[in-house]
């Protein structure tokens, strides 16, 4: 067994591109679900419109990188309004239905043959990241250190993406922290508990829910940018519903309505996934496991991660950072 490689990939995954992009999008989802109680099952769509906003602006319209970022952000805000205006007046479960449907519509439009000229069909777009990597301050090479025998190195491109990513995560966490300690955040949390009570105290519930939807959507869209830049491409099927469900897993894993919850949740999620995959595929390769081949390991790891999550929810339903007292109140 090649334990060095297993540990190297596992530790790197704790801070890698996937952790960053999912973590930041999950912070946005935490604003929706954790703080405001909005059941948004379309977070992937916010990532998608941002990633595509960037790609289409640069590739199809031939405009510079920054214009792409701005269009991506605008697209996320517009999506929030489109989702919010018809549904935020309704009960929570309607928002869930509409968001999941809207996210699928967005994905299917991106991959449709009709709009292949604009969105590139199921292949998506590539070649829009030059503007970003032109800003890269890291000279070509590998960066990192050896942790004992374990090498932990990223190349200069990945370094640049995850540096920007972690700065964005820090900023998003800071903003969420400030907001949720303020009276504004108090109104959001109160809406999560009981909308009518908040109305009876003279607050415009609709307006606050819309603000929360836009804020969480814009933070989520940053995850979409990181995806597009990190993988130097956007494809429609990356922004499917399972992406949203992974983010829910991370939010709950870390502890809903906790500032760092989604970030830690994302790290844990990817570390577990990479570790299990590494160990199992090595075991198959070396011959310790004979009843399946390397291709099946990919499916089995999801089964094991699922089982692990079930155990977590049974024994620690509040997540890593959650407060057990809150769960006890919920059960009443």
């Amino acid at each position: 067994m090649d334990w060095i490689t297993i540990f190297s990939t596992t530790i790197k995954s704790a801070v890698g591109v996937e952790t960053v992009l999912y973590g930041i999008a999950a912070i946005g989802l935490n604003v929706h679900f954790g703080y405001t109680g909005l059941l948004n099952f379309g977070q992937a769509a916010f990532m998608g419109v941002a990633g595509y906003g960037l790609a289409v602006t640069v590739v199809v319209l031939g405009m510079p990188f920054w214009a792409g970022i701005i269009f991506g952000l605008i697209a996320a805000v517009i999506l929030a309004f489109l989702l919010g205006i018809p549904t935020l007046q309704l009960r929570a479960d309607y928002l869930a239905i509409v968001t999941i449907a809207a996210a699928e519509i967005v994905r299917l439009v991106f991959r449709s043959v009709q709009f292949k000229d604009v969105f590139g069909g199921s292949d998506g777009h590539r070649g829009f990241t030059e503007g970003f990597y032109a800003l890269n301050p890291y000279p070509t090479g590998n960066y990192g250190f050896n942790l004992g025998p374990i090498p932990l190195f990223f190349n200069h491109r990945t370094m640049w993406v995850i540096t920007v990513g972690w700065v964005l995560i820090a900023l998003a966490c800071l903003i969420v922290h400030l907001l949720m300690k303020s009276p504004w955040g108090r109104v959001l949390k109160a809406i999560r508990e009981d909308e009518d009570a908040v109305r009876s105290l003279g607050k415009s519930v609709f307006s606050y829910k819309m603000q929360a939807l836009v804020l969480g959507g814009v933070i989520g869209s940053l995850g979409g940018f990181i995806y597009g830049l990190g993988y130097a491409s956007v494809q429609p099927d990356v922004f499917g519903t399972e992406t949203t469900f992974y983010m829910y897993t991370m939010v709950i894993l870390g502890g809903a309505a906790r500032v760092l919850g989604p970030v830690i949740g994302s790290m844990l999620f990817w570390v577990l996934l990479v570790l299990i995959y590494g160990v199992l595929s090595e075991a198959v390769r070396v011959g310790y496991i004979t009843f399946m081949d390397t291709n099946q390991v990919g499916a089995l790891r999801w089964i094991l991660v699922g089982a692990g999550l079930i155990l977590l929810l049974v024994y620690r339903p509040q997540g890593i950072f959650g407060d057990k007292r809150e769960i006890a109140i919920d059960a009443r």
């Binding site: 108090r186 949390k189 109160a190 999560r192 508990e193 009981d194 009518d196 009570a197 908040v198 109305r199 009876s200 105290l201 003279g202 607050k203 415009s204 519930v205 809150e326 109140i329 919920d330 009443r332």
Partner: peptide, 23 residues
């Protein structure tokens, strides 16, 4: 709308109490 009614000085409580439990 309800929130403007409350702002104008007419505030209600509910038959089934609406304490904001996790605040």
């Amino acid at each position: 709308p309800a929130h403007k009614v409350a702002r104008s000085g007419m505030v209600r409580t509910f038959q089934l109490t609406k304490a904001l439990s996790r605040l």
